[in-house]
Computed example of a mutant assay.
Amino acid sequence: MGTPLGDFVRAKRDSIRPESFGLPDGGRRRSPGLRRSELAVRAGISVEYLTRIEQGRDRNPSHSVLHALADGLSLDAGERHHLRYLAKITGGACPGHRPPAPPNREVRPTVLETLRLLEPGVAFVTNRLGDVLAHTGGFELVVGATGLLDAEAPNLTRYVFTDPRARTVFPDWDQVADEQAFDLWLGPSAESSEWFSVQLAPVAGQEFTRRLHQHLPPPAVPLRLDHPVAGELRWHREKLELPSTDAQELVVLLPADETTARAVERLRHHRHGALRAVG
């Protein structure tokens, strides 16, 4: 049985083009990427030990081994942080750990006040599971027609993988799906991430489970959203981590171009006009 750490090392090894490290292609590789022997040499560890890590038979590699693997795989700063996180939760995945449980969904009053000050901006509070815990009216204006907020407890990850509308709403669906699956490894806790994955996997299917074990950080790109009324909207995302006790983040969506900014203004005028007509 594999582990998050072993899955990540293997996935990253498979993703590397040998020639980028100055290694000959060889033309007879059974799979793309680095061979175990090649990574073992670069990291200065034995092939047998690397095999045990990748197969989940060694759950507690030392810090020096983690640094060596990071160097051998040429990980960037974000990937090194993720490697250390996976090592932490892998080492804790043993009998006696706390049972899976959902995270706390309460948002502090001061955070809610911050959202109020951001109006009419497009912002929401979430966690790495994708829960939409609170949001501005501007956020509802932009995503309300997509169906994301229809659920009693809206969750972006569940919406992406289980709601057919998501593939139309997000033109770059694969990118968004990769992001949401990767974020689960940075969830409020290892226990809550496990709880959510167990809940979602049966209904989300292979598209979810395949991504769950990739462990490769997706690239940071603008978010494209195909709004049913306003057309294509492009957003930059600023994410502000709240204190670790909250295990939440404040996400602000900023128009990535003038077309998006104008489209959002038209949506606001349309809504205000509709409200006046009802009154």
Rank of each mutant, 00 (worst) to 15 (best):
R158S: 09
S244E: 15
P102Q: 05
L129I: 08
W235Y: 15
S31I: 13
G137D: 15
G44D: 00
H272K: 15
S197Y: 07
D163R: 10
A247G: 10
L254M: 11
S193E: 02
T259Q: 15
A201S: 14
R28I: 12
S20F: 03
Q175S: 15
N60Y: 02
T51A: 12
R36L: 07
R211P: 04
G91A: 11
V160G: 02
E191C: 07
L5C: 03
R59T: 14
V122D: 09
L66K: 08
A93G: 08
Q199I: 07
A11P: 01
N104W: 00
G56L: 00
V160F: 08
F196C: 07
L223K: 13
A261N: 02
V125A: 02
E232N: 06
E258C: 09
V169S: 05
H135N: 02
L23K: 08
E140I: 00
R116N: 12
G56P: 00
A247I: 01
R29K: 09
V142A: 05
I45P: 08
D163P: 04
P100Y: 03
L73E: 04
S62I: 05
H82L: 11
L69A: 03
L212F: 13
H215K: 08
L112Q: 12
G138Y: 05
R80C: 09
S64K: 14
T110D: 15
A87H: 04
E179Y: 11
R237W: 00
T126F: 01
R35T: 06
H213F: 11
R210G: 14
Y49H: 15
G144V: 02
A153V: 13
R237M: 13
L115M: 06
S192L: 02
L34E: 08
M1R: 10
P164V: 09
R13K: 07
V169P: 05
A220R: 12
Q175Y: 15
D183N: 14
E106Y: 08
A68P: 04
A220D: 14
A263R: 03
A256Y: 07
R105V: 10
F21R: 13
N60P: 03
D163F: 03
V252F: 08
P218R: 06
T114V: 11
L39P: 01
P24Q: 11
E152S: 10
R29Q: 02
E191H: 07
W235V: 01
W195E: 00
V107I: 09
R98C: 02
E232I: 10
G130M: 01
G6C: 06
L50V: 10
R211V: 04
